[in-house]
């Protein structure tokens, strides 16, 4: 009898805790984007930028510089689509190597991977929506 009582308490604790950690709709969407983005990151970016976005020496810049990511937010979509070949300063160091274009990534792929980078490495919580990416891509130089 006491056993059943104990079990009931355990079950209700479980449900209570599950409810309190329940996320808002927006959070869930961000999390979904980030999960999809992680797959893209592993296949297309990890080799150069590293598993944790740590970069490599002065060859490949880290993706953990929140300042850079925030200031250049509107440029990020274009960098991923078209690559980059100019002198940039990231995390206090100067880089100038070639990042190749990613022509096979679709607009939504870019939204996924940027959400993954900015929320995981960049410690932000704002999603990159498809609309934002498409708007930014129109303005690529």
């Amino acid at each position: 009898m006491t056993k059943i009582y104990f079990l009931a308490i355990l079950v209700s604790i479980y449900f209570l805790s599950a409810m309190s950690s329940c996320q808002s709709g927006e959070d869930i969407k961000t999390a979904q984007y980030a999960v999809n983005g992680q797959k893209i990151y592993i296949n297309h970016c990890k080799n150069c930028h590293g598993e944790k976005g740590e970069g490599l020496g002065l060859l490949y810049p880290p993706l953990t510089d929140v300042d850079f990511l925030t200031k250049n937010r509107e440029r990020l979509s274009c960098i991923i689509r078209n690559g980059l070949n100019e002198e940039i300063t990231v995390a206090g160091k100067t880089f100038h190597t070639i990042m190749p274009a990613n022509e096979t990534l679709t607009d939504i792929d870019i939204a996924y991977v940027l959400t993954y980078i900015t929320t995981n490495f960049g410690k932000q919580d704002k999603i990159f929506s498809l609309e934002e990416v498409q708007q930014d891509l129109i303005n690529c130089k």
Binding site: N47, C48, P100
Partner: peptide, 10 residues
Amino acid sequence: CPSICPTMNR
């Protein structure tokens, strides 16, 4: 090299 080399040399 865009593929395996960066990881290999890292």
